[in-house]
Simulated scan of single mutants.
Amino acid sequence: MPSAVPSAVATAVEDVDPQLREALLACWTDVSNAGGAVGFVPPVSRDDVAPVLDSLLERVAQGRERVVVLRADGELAGWAVLSLSVSPLRRHWATVLRVQVHPARQGQGLGRALMSGVHDAARDLGLEMLHLTVRGGYGIEGFYQGLGYREFGRMPGAIRLAPGDDREEIHLYVEL
């Protein structure tokens, strides 16, 4: 697997300004339209993605989620979300959502750099464990297993891409 680009830096942000929002929106739309399993089925427009992004950003403003932004060569190359639990029984772990690297930047080791930043941000928050899900049929679980994630379950037919095209949702976790 290629190593991370030396100029790639992933950092958690608690405040998303309009310029960063625009970059997140563009990335999410492009990743979705390239077939990325990040909550949509292509084709999508920015108008489709914007309300979902804005809802996510409301949770960031409330402190319920953190955006981890990956910059390579000074530009947004990808991002992910740490979704924090409000339950006192679950404050030691979080769910990782919307992991994405822009299609033009894939194959450069940036996914690993992004996830390293996600793990660092989680540790900085005092988290001990992370959970994420992947859409079956893409083989992406192997990427996460290479980062130490372990599968603990599959939910058959949880994701419906189209009538007759149901996919399983694969659950993975890692101890930090």
Rank of each mutant, 00 (worst) to 15 (best):
V38S: 04
R71T: 00
D54C: 15
L76K: 00
G78Q: 08
R46L: 15
V60Q: 03
V49C: 11
V49E: 09
G39E: 04
A77L: 03
P43D: 09
D47E: 09
G78C: 03
L56T: 13
E58A: 13
W79Q: 02
E75S: 02
P43N: 03
A37L: 07
A72Y: 01
A72I: 10
A77M: 09
G78V: 01
A77C: 03
A50H: 10
L84S: 10
P43W: 08
V69H: 02
V41C: 05
P42G: 05
V52D: 15
V38C: 10
R64A: 14
V49I: 14
G74H: 00
D47F: 04
A72F: 07
V68Q: 03
S83P: 05
A72W: 01
D54H: 04
S45K: 04
V67K: 11
V41E: 12
L70M: 10
A80I: 07
R59P: 15
G74W: 01
V38Q: 02
G63E: 13
L70A: 02
R59E: 14
V69P: 12
A80S: 12
A77R: 01
A77V: 02
R64D: 14
R64W: 14
A72E: 14
D47Q: 08
D54T: 04
A37S: 12
R66G: 10
D47K: 10
V60P: 10
Q62L: 13
V68S: 07
D73M: 01
V49K: 05
L57W: 01
G39R: 10
S83C: 15
G78A: 03
V52R: 15
V67R: 13
L53M: 08
V67I: 15
L84G: 05
V38E: 00
R46Y: 08
A72N: 03
D48E: 02
S45D: 05
D48Q: 01
V68R: 12
V68G: 03
G35W: 06
Q62I: 14
D54P: 09
V49F: 00
L57G: 11
A80V: 08
V41G: 07
V81M: 10
A50N: 05
R59I: 14
S83E: 13
Q62A: 13
D47M: 00
E58W: 15
G78H: 09
A77K: 01
V67D: 02
W79C: 14
A80P: 08
R46E: 15
L84Q: 02
R59W: 11
E65A: 14
V60M: 04
D47I: 13
E75D: 04
L57R: 09
W79Y: 13
S55L: 15
V69N: 09
P43A: 01
V49Y: 13
L82S: 14
A50Y: 07
A77I: 05
P51R: 05
R66P: 12
E58I: 14
A80M: 08
E75P: 00
L82D: 13
L84P: 00
W79H: 12
L70P: 06
A80Y: 02
W79I: 04
S45N: 02
A61D: 12
A61N: 09
V67N: 09
Q62H: 05
L76S: 03
L84A: 11
G35D: 06
A34V: 06
Q62T: 00
P51D: 07
A77W: 03
S83D: 12
P43K: 01
V52F: 12
